[in-house]
Design a protein around this nucleic acid. Sequence first.
DNA 1: ACCTGAACACCGTTCAAGT
DNA 2: ACCTGAACACCGTTCAAGT
Lengths: 189, 189
Amino acid sequence: MRADAKKNYEHILAVANVVIAEHGVDASLRDIARRAGVGLGTLYRHFPTREALLEALLRASFDEFTTKARILETASSPDDALVSWLREVVEFTSNYQGVVDVMMAAKEDPESALHASCITMRTAGTKLLARAQAEGLARIDMDGDDLFSLAAALAWLSNQPSSAPRADHLFSIIASAILTNRAGSDFRA
Amino acid sequence: MRADAKKNYEHILAVANVVIAEHGVDASLRDIARRAGVGLGTLYRHFPTREALLEALLRASFDEFTTKARILETASSPDDALVSWLREVVEFTSNYQGVVDVMMAAKEDPESALHASCITMRTAGTKLLARAQAEGLARIDMDGDDLFSLAAALAWLSNQPSSAPRADHLFSIIASAILTNRAGSDFRA
DNA sequence: ACCTGAACACCGTTCAAGT
DNA sequence: ACCTGAACACCGTTCAAGT
């Protein structure tokens, strides 16, 4: 990559981070290019789709969650590890308004630039879940996709002004459903 | 209302129902006006905001949920009544893609045309919840707003292609969290 | 009273023209 | 190689002009 191109690439990314933090994932790409002092075509050259931009913005953090899962797997009890990890994922995700909708769609779309990140997250979560399940600490009628979905739902709730104040409480309600299985699993099955 | 105006009003509503079923709550208003064979200004005259249009579209169904709650309150056991009602609300809401986002926002905004409908729903749910709580069948650390939030989250999940196939299962997981309290409530409180 | 559609200020996306 | 910005096809919203 040419030096000027690299500079543009990184500057766009920095500006995008600010603008998306402000206006959410649907922020105007025109606005980002404008505030970056760059032509609209330049933004599209570096990030051909909105998801490509998001991917560049979030990849590092997603990788961190994978290593964090590995650490928790050896450092904490299975149930604590699962819940702590879930809490961090939800908290991080809720910093990017609207990103959960994009992630949920990207998980099903192999063409999406965010697809790999979704699978990465699901894999990390699945391992923590399976470990808790193996010790009878998590309900067995759940898989990694269910965990992904519940995490997404919690992040979505954290992003709604209406439920954000009670986000912690809603988290604990759903966490208790995941962790304790005591005959609740066959309810209206 | 003049006869021609009334005819327009109702025709717009009918077309909107179709278009919104097809493209979700963010459907193009221009498109609705076009397909209704009506000027864009006419649509705005009858429905000054998108939420006013949604309100006209959904009010009847929301009222039904209130009467349905009243019936369940005398016809079923407290836990069955709560869960059955919740299930119907979630199922209905998930027919209108994106409406949960609008509802969550409208609940906090007294100026929204949908605000009253939100409060109506919350009130109906709160009564069913309180009745179950009074008999020890639902966790006590929850209020009507929490119930509203969980219902919204479930409807949101039902709307995501990624989680829709497991929507029933996710419903039962969260329902079990609401219904059975067995010491799970103080988890990580 | 009610209806119409042009006008305005925004989008996302593409692509010919420049350096 | 890379950048620019005009061009195109869409929006939501408003409002002067018509009947």
